[in-house]
Amino acid sequence: MSTNKTVRMSANDVRVFYGDKEAIKGVSVDIMENEVIAFIGPSGCGKSTFLRCLNRMNDTIEGCRVEGEITLDGNNIYDSRMDPVLLRARVGMVFQRPNPFPKSIYENVAYGPRIHGLASSKRDLDEIVEVSLSKAGLWDEVKDRLMEPGTGLSGGQQQRLCIARTIAVSPEVILMDEPCSALDPIATATVEELIEELSSQFSIAIVTHSMQQAARVSNRTAYFHLGKLIEVGDTDEVFTKPKNELTEAYITGRFG
């Protein structure tokens, strides 16, 4: 049960404003250690906006203001002493479309560890690259062509390369924003399998439009509606016996 786990991140009454418009209206939720939590909800419900608060990706958006508190291991991530670059290494992100750097496969993974000074020698770096690619289930497929451009890989491979790049800097939490929406079903299955494996080491928060995907990969599911968190619970429970009518309407495909 997730209740026995340690809280990794905690959001408390988080509100996000784009100018005058309140996009997130007081969301409180915990992300536990080693759990996969899925954020679902209709377009514009705020699930992606909320996800992007968790590693301060919204900082870069003009006119965006975040209120409330988000902590990582008990420390407020919006504290002025928190370095956002460091934060984004601890709370990594994988995006909707695979976005490898226009560099070699090796460089894609090595870049983060290098700028964060995680490797003291070339051998260290090689090892980080190999371990990260292995964890991302990509090593066997690319070990003989590490110097080829990352952009030459298939979509599914590119997405796993981006995951390898994220885990290369040893994050605690991985945020995934619809990581499979540009992938075919087989590549999707591979990434989903990877998510399950990674959850033994990391906490994962995933935004997905596919309810079946949320049902398949997550331990807990959170349903967002018009900027509010309507319901969060064990995925089993949410998909068989949701507590809230709005959640039920959404997951069963009814008019809400």
Binding site: M211, Q212, F239, E248, T252
Partner: peptide
């Protein structure tokens, strides 16, 4: 249809 919730039940 992959029914859920009350439909699944």
């Amino acid at each position: 249809r992959q029914p859920t919730a009350r439909d699944l039940r």
